[in-house]
Deep mutational scan, measured.
Amino acid sequence: HTVDVQGVTYHFDNPEEARKFAEEMAKRLGLQVHVKDGRYKVE
């Protein structure tokens, strides 16, 4: 499970961890979480 944050890619084994990380980063950076091709993108 992959999370892209402003061009940096993070990998997680656990989909729940990936989702939480994406939401946390989006909140911290004031950005949105998009799901695209099964990847989380924070932009």
Rank of each mutant, 00 (worst) to 15 (best):
V33W: 06
K41S: 14
R39L: 07
G30E: 04
R39Y: 13
V33D: 01
G30Y: 03
Q32P: 06
A18D: 00
R28V: 11
D4V: 07
H11G: 06
T9M: 14
E16Q: 11
V3D: 00
K27M: 11
L29V: 02
E24M: 13
F21S: 01
H11K: 10
K36W: 03
F21H: 03
D4N: 06
D4T: 07
M25W: 12
Q32L: 08
R19G: 06
N14Y: 10
K20Y: 11
V3C: 06
G38C: 14
H11N: 11
E16C: 07
K41M: 15
R19Q: 09
G30F: 04
A18H: 00
A18T: 03
V3H: 00
E43A: 09
V42I: 06
L29S: 03
Y40V: 11
F21K: 02
H11D: 09
V35K: 07
K27I: 10
L29C: 07
K41G: 06
H1A: 12
G7M: 04
H11Y: 13
Q6R: 09
H34D: 05
D37K: 05
H1F: 12
V42Q: 02
L31A: 08
T9F: 13
K20I: 12
Q6F: 13
V3K: 00
K36I: 15
Q32T: 14
E24R: 08
E43T: 10
G7C: 14
L29K: 04
T9H: 12
A22D: 00
E16N: 11
H11P: 08
H34M: 08
V33M: 06
V5W: 03
E43R: 05
Q32N: 07
Y10D: 01
F12E: 00
R19E: 08
Q6A: 08
D37S: 04
K41P: 05
Q32A: 14
E43W: 06
H34W: 05
V35T: 06
K41R: 13
R19M: 10
Q32M: 09
T9E: 14
K36F: 05
G30C: 13
E24D: 12
K41N: 12
E23G: 06
Q6T: 10
M25I: 12
D37A: 04
G7I: 01
D13Y: 08
E43H: 06
A22K: 00
V33K: 01
Q6H: 10
K20C: 15
K27D: 09
Y10R: 05
V8Y: 10
Q6I: 14
Y10L: 05
Y10K: 04
Y40M: 13
Q32C: 14
L29R: 03
Y10M: 04
Q32G: 06
L29N: 03
T2V: 15
H34G: 05
K36G: 06
H11A: 11
A18S: 05
G30H: 06
Q32H: 14
A26M: 02
T2Y: 15
E16T: 12
H11S: 13
G38D: 06
K41W: 15
M25Y: 06
Q32I: 14
Y40K: 04
Y10N: 04
T2H: 15
F12W: 03
H34S: 13
M25A: 11
V3M: 01
V8A: 09
G38H: 05
E43F: 09
K27Y: 09
A22M: 01
E23L: 11
E23P: 00
L29Q: 03
D4M: 07
V35Y: 15
M25F: 06
L29T: 04
E23S: 07
E23H: 14
D37I: 01
E24N: 09
L31Y: 07
D37G: 06
Y40A: 05
P15V: 11
D4L: 08
M25P: 00
A26L: 01
V33N: 02
R28Y: 08
H34L: 08
E17G: 08
Y40P: 05
V5M: 05
V42M: 02
G7N: 08
K36E: 14
P15S: 13
V42K: 02
L29H: 06
V8L: 11
L31H: 04
E23V: 12
G38A: 03
K36N: 07
T2I: 15
D4S: 07
F12H: 02
T9C: 15
P15Q: 14
L29Y: 06
L31S: 04
E17D: 14
D37R: 03
E23T: 09
K36Q: 13
G38K: 05
G7K: 05
R28K: 13
V33S: 03
F21E: 01
E17C: 15
R28N: 08
A22Y: 00
E17K: 10
T9I: 15
K20P: 02
K36T: 11
V3I: 02
V35R: 05
Y10E: 03
R39S: 14
E17W: 06
V42F: 03
K36S: 10
F21I: 02
D37E: 06
D13F: 09
V8Q: 12
K41E: 14
G7L: 04
F21L: 03
E16W: 11
R39V: 14
G30T: 03
E24G: 09
Y40L: 15
R28S: 10
A22W: 01
Q6E: 13
E17P: 05
D4P: 01
V3L: 01
H1G: 10
N14A: 11
G7F: 04
E43C: 15
R19N: 05
R28H: 10
E23W: 14
Q32Y: 08
V5C: 14
L29I: 03
R39Q: 15
H11V: 13
G7P: 00
V42S: 02
A22R: 00
G38Q: 04
R39I: 15
A22Q: 00
Y40W: 12
E16H: 11
E16I: 11
V8G: 05
T2E: 13
P15D: 15
V5P: 00
A18F: 00
Q6N: 10
H11F: 13
D13S: 10
E43Y: 09
V5L: 09
V35A: 06
V42C: 04
F12Y: 05
R39F: 07
A18L: 02
D4F: 07
R19H: 07
E43G: 14
G30N: 07
F12R: 00
